[in-house]
């Protein structure tokens, strides 16, 4: 059950990051205007902003602060782990970190780069 709670917590942050990536690519140079030039409609950016606000409101304050803090340092605060490799910094994770992933309710951070780790096998 506690692992389910952690999965829900990570999934909420996961959704937030997906949304942030989308908003960023629409607003930030050099990608701003790219989709429009390709012929895609991007008329309702405000809907994404609103969805972002609503989603953030549902995330516990501590988790949100952690995500925002890491996002200030990295383009992607959450990265996946594949074959015990953090796909943010591409460093191998120690076996201890791998076994700790099941610690109840804990969002794990990469010991090397500090990004939030999303495990493939949840």
């Amino acid at each position: 059950m506690e692992n389910d709670a952690l999965k829900d917590k990570l999934d909420a942050l996961f959704r937030l990051q997906d949304l942030d990536i989308m908003i960023r690519e629409l607003k930030d140079p050099p990608t701003k205007g790219t989709e429009e030039k390709m012929g895609f409609s991007v008329a309702h950016l405000e809907k994404l902003q609103l969805a972002r606000t609503r989603l953030a409101e549902r995330i516990p304050a501590l988790d949100l602060r952690l995500y925002e803090r890491i996002s200030r340092h990295f383009t992607h605060a959450i990265v996946s782990v594949e074959n015990r490799i953090c796909l943010g910094c591409f460093m191998g994770l120690p076996t201890s970190a791998v076994s700790l992933r099941t610690e109840p309710g804990m969002v794990r951070l990469c010991e090397n780069c500090g990004r939030i780790l999303y495990w493939l096998d949840y």
């Binding site: 999934d11 996961f14 959704r15 990051q17 997906d18 949304l19 990536i21 989308m22 690519e25 629409l26 390709m38 012929g39 895609f40 409609s41 991007v42 008329a43 309702h44 950016l45 809907k47 994404l48 969805a51 992607h76 959450i78 990265v79 996946s80 999303y118």
Partner: peptide, 29 residues
């Protein structure tokens, strides 16, 4: 989670770019 991201992208504006073609797209973890 992927479906949710794609639906959010559609809320921004349809990826149906006309002439009978749609290119739903996006990045996701």
């Amino acid at each position: 989670l992927l479906l949710e991201m794609l639906e959010r992208r559609e809320s921004l504006g349809s990826t149906g770019i006309g002439k009978g073609v749609a290119i739903p797209h996006g990045r996701s973890l």
